[in-house]
């Protein structure tokens, strides 16, 4: 009886759909022209280079802040990355823990600002630099376990796969697209799943033994692809 309603309802649906698309355009650019994330202004311009940068060999006492870093391990501050799916932000307590004993920089404007937050017992309102859609569940812990703990890669290298060369930055800026296609470029590659010499790495080798064929190079290092099940990230 109401069969004639079908087409009008379809049209209304299409109209709503198209108009919602139009209303959402233009969208903010996710990636800037140079393929980086947007420049983010932070409440305190945190110098990653000073903390994680390489030491200046000519300056063994590390006295000149402009010329060298402190080579602090990423995980010293970003301590949650190896413990949880989300990396979190270091608590303010962590900054103060060191800086309350570093008198030499105590009167620098950024540190003064930092202590203002501490004295007021207020969290610093950092802006998010790396964000993923809510339907993606990237697991930091898993990646650190694999690359840092099991394969003993340098921390900065492992973090750098996604976060870029942070030791060269002041305020962090997104370096990679962090799109699914980009993730897949890595997960599709053959990676060593045993340590050099063929020693299986914990449960990794077991998991990869299900993946055939397993590539093997001259040094007898077994290689396989990263996990590629949808549910690994889309839970």
């Amino acid at each position: 009886m109401y069969r004639f309603l079908r087409f009008p309802i379809l049209l209304v649906g299409l109209f709503l759909a198209v108009s919602s698309f139009a209303a959402n355009n233009p969208q903010p650019a996710l990636t800037t022209e140079d393929a980086l994330g947007p420049q983010v202004v932070q409440p305190i311009e945190f110098p990653h280079n000073r903390h994680a940068g390489l030491r200046n060999p000519a300056d063994p006492t590390n006295s000149d802040p402009l010329k060298g870093g402190m080579e602090i391990n990423c995980q010293y501050c970003h301590t949650y990355a190896r413990r949880s799916a989300v990396a979190g932000i270091p608590p303010l307590q962590k900054c103060i823990g060191c800086h309350q004993s570093i008198e030499s920089v105590r009167n620098k404007p950024r540190i003064v600002e930092l202590f203002k937050y501490w004295d007021a017992k207020k969290a610093v309102p950092w802006k998010k630099v790396h964000d993923l859609p809510d339907f993606v569940r990237f697991n930091h812990e898993r990646h650190i376990k694999r690359f840092v703990e099991q394969q003993d890669r340098p921390v900065q290298e492992a973090c750098g796969y996604c976060h870029g060369d942070v030791k060269e930055m002041t305020v962090a800026r997104r370096q990679k697209p962090l799109s699914m296609g980009w993730c897949a470029t890595c997960h599709e590659k053959d990676h060593p799943v045993v340590a050099e010499g063929g020693t299986p790495i914990a449960g990794q080798a077991y998991w990869y033994s299900f993946q055939k064929p397993v590539a093997q190079d001259k040094s007898a290092v077994v290689k396989a692809k990263g996990p590629n099940d949808c549910w690994q990230c889309h839970k």
């Binding site: 996710l30 994330g37 017992k121 969290a123 610093v124 998010k128 964000d131 859609p133 809510d134």
Partner: peptide
């Protein structure tokens, strides 16, 4: 139709959303 038009709409909020950390944890 809605799904198609929804392509490109993501919830990514680089540089806009505030991530509040603990003061003491």
């Amino acid at each position: 139709a809605v799904a198609l038009s929804g392509c490109g709409n993501t919830s990514i909020e680089d540089g806009k959303e505030t991530v509040v950390s603990y003061v003491e944890a």
